[in-house]
């Protein structure tokens, strides 16, 4: 697939970067002229993946979160969010709705949200090495009055 544009950023796993990261990716996605609903879906999915790096991957420590977003033909955004944290033992289990290893205040719905708000989500992970979440979404082409 042809890559028309791309940006990469690295942030520390500080919770203040949750809103920063989703704002950056959604500002980049604006180049595809998404609807407000599409922007909101992308923001939410990014927030889920970045929060997982902070809460799970780098639990009790601070590490780098690597974020890449690409704009592909035809009008698709592909987002990669990678950490070098603790990794996931059983990815299938982790992706089940309501499954959480955090207990208490977490719902276990992050992956379910990513899957329902994006068109495709894939997860690669190795224990003690880290996790990469790749998600993509096709943005509807809207009729432009002033094209």
């Amino acid at each position: 697939m042809q890559v028309n544009n791309k940006f990469t950023m690295t942030v520390l796993s500080r919770s203040a970067n949750e809103s920063f990261a989703r704002a950056c990716v959604s500002a980049f996605a604006a180049q595809l002229d998404p609807t407000l609903d599409e922007i909101s879906d992308i923001k939410t999915a990014v927030s889920e993946a970045v929060t997982n790096c902070i809460v799970h991957a780098y639990k009790n420590k601070i590490g780098n979160i690597y974020i890449t977003a690409e704009l592909l033909e035809p009008n698709i955004i592909r987002i990669k969010i990678r950490d070098r944290g603790c990794g996931i033992e059983n990815i299938e289990k982790a992706m089940e709705p309501l499954f959480t290893t955090a207990g208490g205040e977490r719902a276990g719905l992050g992956f379910a949200v990513m899957q329902s708000f994006m068109d495709a989500v894939s997860v690669k992970s190795a224990p003690q090495k880290g996790t990469t979440v790749t998600m993509s979404k096709k943005i509807s082409r809207r009729f432009k009055l002033n094209a």
Partner: peptide
């Protein structure tokens, strides 16, 4: 204006 699954956790809790 925005809520992710952390908000769901808040409601459930």
């Amino acid at each position: 204006s925005f809520m992710d699954s952390s908000g769901i956790g808040l409601v459930m809790g």
